[in-house]
Design a protein around this nucleic acid. Sequence first.
DNA 1: GAAGATTGATGTCTCAATCTTC
DNA 2: GAAGATTGAGACATCAATCTTC
Lengths: 191, 191
Amino acid sequence: MLAMKDTQRPVPSASPRRLNARDPRLVPWRMFQVAHAVLNRRLDEDLRREQGMSLAEYVALLQIVEAPGRRLRMSRLAESIVLSRSGVTRLVDRLEEDGLVSRSTCTADGRGAEAVLTERGLERMRRAARTHLHGIEQYFVGVLPDPDLETLERSFRRVVDGVRSEGRDPAACAVPDDLEGATEAEPSPAD
Amino acid sequence: MLAMKDTQRPVPSASPRRLNARDPRLVPWRMFQVAHAVLNRRLDEDLRREQGMSLAEYVALLQIVEAPGRRLRMSRLAESIVLSRSGVTRLVDRLEEDGLVSRSTCTADGRGAEAVLTERGLERMRRAARTHLHGIEQYFVGVLPDPDLETLERSFRRVVDGVRSEGRDPAACAVPDDLEGATEAEPSPAD
DNA sequence: GAAGATTGATGTCTCAATCTTC
DNA sequence: GAAGATTGAGACATCAATCTTC
């Protein structure tokens, strides 16, 4: 494996080379931040204007749509959209008020609750997806050549693995380990 | 297939082909979203724990540090960190309460207000930058080879240009192109 | 009147505490 | 007692309306 698991020290000492404020590699870093900000803002605006739905709601619903049986445990949802548990509770509250999902206590585990997509929710997602996919195509995949997209995917996979494997907070990285090997030696193209 | 290296094309494509929900190009898109979420969450946690400062505050202060005279108009600050004007007002309120910046009415234009970095603010940034730069190195630039970083920079520049050039909201895209030299040519503030 | 900045009202997310079920 | 979910309190961002200055 390459070097990136040597990060167990609480002290920021063992760095290959010290990053300073003038390092040119900070330019891609900033572009990354700005791109995410303007892009998500735009996608959220488009979704609200054309579909009366926030991007956060769309993303949550998408996870549920794709889950087996179109139902998903609250905690799983929290992990997949990177939101706190309480945040998910309230988000699902709103979706439930809109009649897009309904809650159902988990059959196997009485503690758990599942968010289940309603028919109305499915209908809504079908329409919203048009707007959202159009935006992604217009602003992201449509302007980037495939080889670059592959580089992005590989890079971000590595970033995510790095952050999660380093997790100080065990709860925050409760994510299946099958992402582990994917950093280095994955052929996995189209998923 | 789809993309050949039209690397110089600033054109925000009309709509070549319809993107559907199973398109493999959505995988890099999702990795992008997840990577940003987990990474920013971690950087925010680190900054709060070690420096008692949020990532949003850090980013705002950084813009001020790098501005000429270490002072920046409120509206400029809003643009550069992609935040609403009222959001900036309140963010600067908090920074002012902490004594990290002070407000100063703009000399040239009586309507404008500037956020000016205080000595204490500069000191604080010097310390906070250690934590932040360490995180960026550990989770981002340190795990990505330079050629990939270049691809990311180029890609995201294109994305940002695309979103802004398409701007329905002219106010939201009034941003200088000088992101370029800021990291490179500034008189080493926060390091 | 338009631009820059602020304020009030409101919505959403987070932590800590709580309740329920295992 | 631990895990899953929820609730209350507080922090932060946004829109729309307002005030000031051009």
